[in-house]
Simulated assay, not measured.
Amino acid sequence: MEPFAKQAAGNGSVTLPIALWSERYPQLSAGFTSRIGGVSGEPFGSLNCGLHVGDDPAAVVTNRRRLADALGIPFAASTYAEQVHGKEIQVVSRSLRGAGNDSRDKALQAKDGFVTNEPGVFLFAQFADCVPLYFYDPIRRAVGLAHAGWKGTVLQIAQATLETMGAAYGTKPRDVIAAIGPSIGACCYEVDDAVISRVDKLLPELHGLGGGAEGVVAVYERKSEGKYNLNLQQLNRQIMIKAGILPSHIEITGLCTSCRTDLFFSHRKENGKTGRMAAWIGLKEQ
């Protein structure tokens, strides 16, 4: 069953919360936005959450406010960062709550992963094909969110996020539940030798995990000379397992952002001129 279930809010914004998590952990809010239900004009139509893509900043902030309203959280709790395709993780204390929600200058700088154990602090990251990674430790009540393009993936940002949660909160990977959200699928993600050479360096570390060597090899398929279809979702799953998350604790989407431009923005499908979805996670205040 698809873990990210489409849901329309009263203000017209369409989001995709992680349904099973919402049922099991009512104190937790996590999911992914669609492109539907905002105020941005084309080519950012219409729920663009990215301030960095050339859209009218006032429209983006309105969209972010609409999103917070749809999620039932204060806009002041929405915390954003400037992402750089790295693996740096920010521990977000309550003093950083709301960073970047209405301005790039005020965002957390050069961070692609975020963790917090503070109720009422909601983490947001932006996507238009890259892979959103979600982490929840129900024992120590801590959450994490990471942005994994191919660079962040081979840098193992999933493992870096878990290590940061461990250092900050005492999180043990075996206790963590994780999810891999809507992103470009292997069906549409063609890469070259330069990318695959980085993936190949990582594969020996993953050998034998999540179904054996065949499961690891299947993270990419050679299509022609120097061209491959890469499955970033499955590669991140293997990295999570290597880091100690139980395979049964990982939810993985079947949604491809490139296939579903009716629902999502896709940087690759739309030739780089498009908006951004937001992934979010946070603990509700009691």
Rank of each mutant, 00 (worst) to 15 (best):
D193N: 07
K201E: 10
A218D: 09
E221K: 15
L203G: 04
D200V: 00
N231F: 10
R198F: 11
C188I: 00
G212Q: 10
L232R: 05
R174T: 15
S183W: 02
L206D: 00
G185V: 02
V195I: 11
Y189R: 07
A186W: 00
D192I: 01
A186N: 12
G211W: 11
E221L: 13
A213C: 11
A178C: 09
I177E: 03
L203Q: 07
I184L: 02
D200L: 02
L203N: 03
G211F: 10
G208K: 12
I196R: 03
G208H: 14
E221F: 12
L209Y: 07
G181V: 06
S197F: 14
I180T: 09
D200S: 06
K242N: 01
A186Q: 13
K242M: 04
S224P: 05
N231D: 10
L235R: 01
E205Y: 15
I245V: 14
I196D: 04
E214A: 15
H207S: 06
G185T: 02
E225A: 13
V216C: 10
A243S: 08
E205R: 12
I239R: 00
R222C: 03
V176K: 06
A186Y: 00
L235M: 05
N229E: 09
P182V: 02
E190Q: 13
G185I: 01
E214Q: 12
R174G: 13
L230K: 10
L246Q: 14
V219M: 01
G211Q: 01
I241K: 03
C188K: 08
L203S: 02
I177G: 00
R237E: 15
G212M: 05
L203H: 07
G210M: 12
R222F: 04
A243H: 05
E214V: 09
N236C: 15
K242L: 08
G181I: 08
K223H: 15
S197D: 13
D193L: 05
I241V: 13
K242P: 01
I180F: 12
Q233N: 15
I245F: 11
S197C: 11
Q234N: 14
A218N: 04
A194M: 08
E190S: 10
I180D: 06
S197Y: 13
E225T: 07
G210D: 15
K227Q: 07
A194F: 13
D192G: 15
G211M: 04
V195M: 03
V191C: 06
K172A: 09
L246K: 15
V219N: 01
N229Q: 13
V195W: 00
P182T: 05
G215C: 08
I184Y: 00
K172Q: 15
V216Q: 04
V195Y: 00
E214M: 06
L230W: 12
R198W: 12
I184E: 05
D200N: 04
I245K: 10
S197K: 13
R174W: 04
E221A: 07
S197L: 07
Y220V: 01
V176F: 12
G215M: 08
A218T: 01
A213Q: 14
V199Q: 07
D200Q: 07
V217A: 08
C188S: 14
E225P: 06
K223E: 13
K242C: 00
R174L: 11
A194V: 07
L246T: 14
Y220R: 05
A213S: 13
R198N: 11
K227T: 11
Q234K: 14
A179V: 09
D193R: 06
A218I: 03
K242H: 04
